[in-house]
Design a protein around this nucleic acid. Structure first.
Ligand code: SF4
Ligand code: SF4
Lengths: 130, 130
DNA sequence: ATATATCGGACTGTTTCAGTCTTGTATGCT
DNA sequence: AGCATACAAGACTGAAACAGTCCGATATAT
């Protein structure tokens, strides 16, 4: 399953929305305009906030706003924040370790491929979505 | 979950093994030498055969052998053969369709990213694993 | 004939995904 | 002060995919 989760897709849509508007947007606003489940999107925005990409204002007239310039937010960062396993293989992740890691004959090339993919995703930012 | 399945990893290991040996190898041989489950690997090699990457010989002294030159087998091809969903998003796949596809504001950029990733994986072949 | 090896499909426990629901907290407005 | 608004946090669910196993069938060299 070499596929981005819906969380990442919705996260990107939300960030794009915030970048386009500039000001404060509520979860309801973003979810309605983009046809995304309110509850799901709410959780996603909370995670993005914890990561430091956006900041929140509680209470009446509250909502979310971007904390960084769109061109400073790469796809990689969004994926890192929202995806559970974001490395191509276990051995290209820092926190995991594969049982057959020392016997594995493709570990090296996999690392290279991972690096290439990461730098590719690093080169695309929210600014490119506008 | 932006991760290659174990099937793909084992498939790559098996193809690398066949490329290194040159001749005929049995499933048992490959699974033993690489510490991969026999049953699982057997199914993987059957799929690779159906795809036309390798050919099989049944019966005593049978086994599998490469049908193509190592540099002709790209990672993309292996992923396509073994992975169920191999596109970054639903909309970058030919057979699937996303419900919010016409309203989606990130569809275009996602396609571009998919293209870039595909060409990256297309440029890596079994020959690079040797 | 028989041992060897692929072929094909059913089956299982575990994990992840996508989405929902509920309860709590902060805050602007009247 | 009180209320409506909007974020905060976590539990919970059904469905799907993953990784692996098991078993019976078929083909073939010796
Ligand atoms: S060591 Fe080999 S088998 Fe293990 S995760 Fe890395 S590539 Fe996959
Ligand atoms: S259309 Fe948008 S939401 Fe649907 S799969 Fe493509 S990117 Fe994801």
């Amino acid at each position: 399953m070499l596929r981005l989760s819906k969380k990442v897709e919705y996260g990107l849509v939300a960030l794009q929305h915030l970048a386009k508007r500039g000001g404060v947007s509520t979860v309801r606003e973003i979810s309605d305009e983009n046809g995304i489940s309110y509850d799901l999107l709410a959780k996603i925005l909370q995670e993005l906030k914890r990561n430091g990409m956006i900041c929140s204002y509680q209470g009446v007239r509250g909502g979310y706003t971007l904390m960084l310039a769109p061109q400073e937010i790469s796809i990689t960062r969004v994926v890192d924040a929202l995806e559970t396993d974001n490395s191509l293989t276990e051995c290209t992740s820092s926190s995991e370790c594969c049982s057959r890691e020392e016997a594995c004959t493709i570990k090296g090339p996999m690392r290279e491929l991972q690096t290439a993919m990461s730098s590719l995703m690093n080169s695309v930012t929210i600014a490119q979505l506008l």
